[in-house]
Design a protein around this nucleic acid. Sequence first.
DNA 1: TACAGTTACCGAACCGGTTCAGCACGCGAG
DNA 2: CTCGCGTGCTGAACCGGTTCGGTAACTGTA
Lengths: 344, 344
Amino acid sequence: MKRPTITDVARRAGVAKGTVSYALNGQPGVSEETRRRILAVAEELGWRPNPAARALSGSGSQVIGMVLARPAMLLGVEPFLMRLTSGIELELSRSGFALMLKVVGDLDEEMAIYRKWASERRVDGLLILDLRVQDPRLELVEQLGLPATVMGDPRRHAGLSVARKDETAAMTSVVEYLAALGHRRIVHVAGQREFLHIRQRGRAFGATLRRLGITGTARTVYADYTLERAAEITRGLLAEASPPTALIYDNDVMAVAGAGVAREMGVDVPGELSIVAWDDSPLCQFAYPPLTAVSVDVVEYGRAATELLIGVIGGGPAGEVTAEPARLIPRGTTARAKDAPGRA
Amino acid sequence: MKRPTITDVARRAGVAKGTVSYALNGQPGVSEETRRRILAVAEELGWRPNPAARALSGSGSQVIGMVLARPAMLLGVEPFLMRLTSGIELELSRSGFALMLKVVGDLDEEMAIYRKWASERRVDGLLILDLRVQDPRLELVEQLGLPATVMGDPRRHAGLSVARKDETAAMTSVVEYLAALGHRRIVHVAGQREFLHIRQRGRAFGATLRRLGITGTARTVYADYTLERAAEITRGLLAEASPPTALIYDNDVMAVAGAGVAREMGVDVPGELSIVAWDDSPLCQFAYPPLTAVSVDVVEYGRAATELLIGVIGGGPAGEVTAEPARLIPRGTTARAKDAPGRA
DNA sequence: TACAGTTACCGAACCGGTTCAGCACGCGAG
DNA sequence: CTCGCGTGCTGAACCGGTTCGGTAACTGTA
């Protein structure tokens, strides 16, 4: 009834343990015939490797780790994460790796987990999310010697792999789109300013406006990703003497909340106010009116990042990938600005 | 530079490996003085246990597993999952366990993972989600001998722990609430009929209606949790000759989609149509109008289920917990039925 | 004082793999 | 025929813990 070990296979096949190990791992030093026989016996006995034993004798644990450092309240509202996870799993399944997930409250706890995992050899590599502007994790991880893929676009990345996403190009296209609709008073209701990708969007937002010669009301306001703040900010903006005619929200749920506030205040969307949501999701499609959204193939992004990581764990060099450019999907929340000058 | 092992600690403390092991695990057979000395040395050297070594010599892996069998499309739209995970982590952190997460496409793959994990001793226990009406997983898991907590309310549970949630009481209170508002034409737009909790809600829905003497239009319609179906169904219902005056959705995102459809069709919410969402979330609060919702403390539910599991892994008997009763939180999407008879 | 029982510790086996040194054998070259 | 070398396999050490049998020293009892 007990699970067969490599010793059982060896005995049954009439060879030494070591030989079985070589055969099962496709290493040289075993004749083709013996290898076939060993594989047949292993199959027959239903042998499965014991990851603990493997991990103990130097091989990795076949596990990659991912830590989410977000207040519990914020976790639920992000479809992004689950879709990313789907993508990660896609790649993990092919390579037989498993995913260790940890949810913590802040960056310090996250780094404590990295230290723990490293010292316990719990994971072979890390996926690093939610890059900060000055991110202490990169240095730590490099110092710990753990392979990692950084998801985002860091300036310095200390020999780690990077899965980039071009926030700048995406934001530029959004602003250009709104500008082409005649919007001049545009506000970017952003997520937490600590996040690098948010900062990058903010910069691109400002830069594009300047390039297009749009000045004045246009600005970025940081909302820390909570819906409370997003609603509050939107309320404030719409109550201004000369309110914005277009709002860009850094995620879909904030956008829904924002649209709600507009409606509550009697501001017509998209008649008087255009809204763009970042990160398209089913919610965007089925809200009313359906939200114009910036769509990124998050699943593929997660998959590619994981592929990169597995490559490094396998001994390859650190690499880079860049996610496919985001696409702006116009739906029902964007329209020509009410006060737009007629087409030139 | 290498990480200290138990042997290093033993040498440094001048005792045998075995003694160190006993001391570090708080087992008897070591004098108080020696124990203190060993602990001091371990601390000084920064010793950390190697989980692989522990797992290899009989102890568990200190990991619990959770498999999500849902089509990738459905994953993103469920705040429920992330909040549940927060609760799970709460308990795992105290006990030093880690969470292994796997996302698969269907129940067969899920069971394959269970077999794999069991044979590889990857996990010490399982959290089983999304209970089906006839759920083949329960038997499998019992057969594999893996401790598990079943989240839901199964008829038979084969010696496994159960974390119950009283769907019946919750649904009953929702129906009573709507009935008290004068609603007679109520439809329950349900999730997938395969899920046991959905079925339980459906039954409770019907039973309560019968008890209250409400018959006719009232019924449950299964929407499979996709927003497409939910929107489509809502559209169909509202187009009927005698459309429902109240809709109960099995999750918050379907409810938002439903409210959108109503608006699109010119049906006033809550004037002409009341809407209740299951699983309260920030989205419910900040949608407009804010959604009346059934609120469950999902975080605590996850925590309690995990506590139960850890108990069983620690050798305790299988147990049961029941989540705190759901609370109905009236917000802006429910009102007195338009055609309600005056108060008696 | 002799003996049994306890306490505190030692030493070794063991978990299930990986890896390396070494050995036997066969084959081609000289 | 002998030497040298590559091939194919063996046996053992090793990874870092846990656990168990054994034993020396100490304690209590008759």
